[in-house]
Design a protein around this nucleic acid. Structure first.
Lengths: 162, 162
DNA sequence: TAAAATCCCATAAAATCCCATTGTATCCCG
DNA sequence: CGGGATACAATGGGATTTTATGGGATTTTA
């Protein structure tokens, strides 16, 4: 089982005084082709100082996978604990936010802080999910390929001179 | 068989002098999309020092699952006993409470004690069900992932400084 | 009839909706 | 093919509604 439509591309959008951000239209179109919802789920990324984001279709897939894992090892008490922990991380440590008719979400303050997002947000498609970065943190991150940083620099420039 | 709408997110709400608590709106909306009831069922969590909570739709699902398990092993007397025990826990050891038009329940005193809930309650969505914690007990619990404790700390801070 | 449970109203803060503007990409038609 | 006209994306700001919560009044129950 895999998702047919994949997130790709990049964009740099403003976060306004109310904490609102436009989700780039090219990401929204993927969400709406995958399902009929108009919401995204936000989580702290496990490895990078950024946020991970995805749509309900991906969330359902992830949940089903967890369930199947549990049923396979249902008698093992250790597996039971790990299931509880993963479930908490997958659901309690995430926030689902709807986007409005103009394609904006309001950033939940907790997620905004966890992702250290300031007044601009860099969106990066990564296939099944996408990421939201403070562009400066991406430029400072040693594990990010230089070519990707070039893209971030381009987006910053593009915005700066307009 | 799976539930379409899942509980997710976190919130820290006050328990007032009368024992009333607001069920966070984002949890209520899931309950009302799953069915047309406006009640939640409370139980002591099997593994953690907190309460487990869910809606009538989930209770029905759980009951059906138990029934199927029994039928599969109908000849096994041990299975029969286990079924009786689980059934007792699922129904006798729980309390169903309605929430009012403003989204509040009054905490049944027994459950409040079993969950050791003081004057604040931390709500954590976990997919099919959600949990209600005394936030301090969550911070003290070794089996809870640190990232989730960070969220609890954030919710406490958010409330404390306002 | 006293205690307890329930209902009802009030309010401040926060979240949401609605409308307006601008810039850019796209379309269309002579 | 030029040049408007159109559509859509991103963004700002004000108005409205919901949410979380407190407190009093009223009803139930023992």
């Amino acid at each position: 089982m895999a998702l047919e439509h994949l997130f790709q591309g990049s964009a740099l959008n403003a976060v306004d005084a109310k904490g609102r951000v436009s989700i780039p239209a090219f990401l929204r179109s993927v969400i709406e082709r995958r399902g009929d919802a108009r919401t995204i789920t936000l989580a702290k990324h496990e490895a990078f100082p950024c946020l991970s984001a995805y749509d309900p279709a991906y969330a359902a897939l992830k949940h089903a996978k967890l369930e199947r894992l549990l049923e396979k090892e249902e008698t093992n008490p250790e597996a039971e604990l790990e299931y509880q922990q993963r479930n908490l991380m997958a659901f309690a440590a995430t926030e689902e936010v709807p986007y409005d008719s103009s394609g904006r979400i309001v950033f939940p303050p907790m997620m905004r802080r966890k992702g250290q997002i300031g007044d601009v947000a860099l969106f990066l498609g990564t296939g099944e999910t996408f990421q939201i970065w403070n562009p400066q943190l991406l430029l400072d991150e040693a594990r990010i390929p230089e070519d990707l940083k070039d893209i971030a620099r381009y987006r910053l420039e593009e915005r700066g001179q307009s």
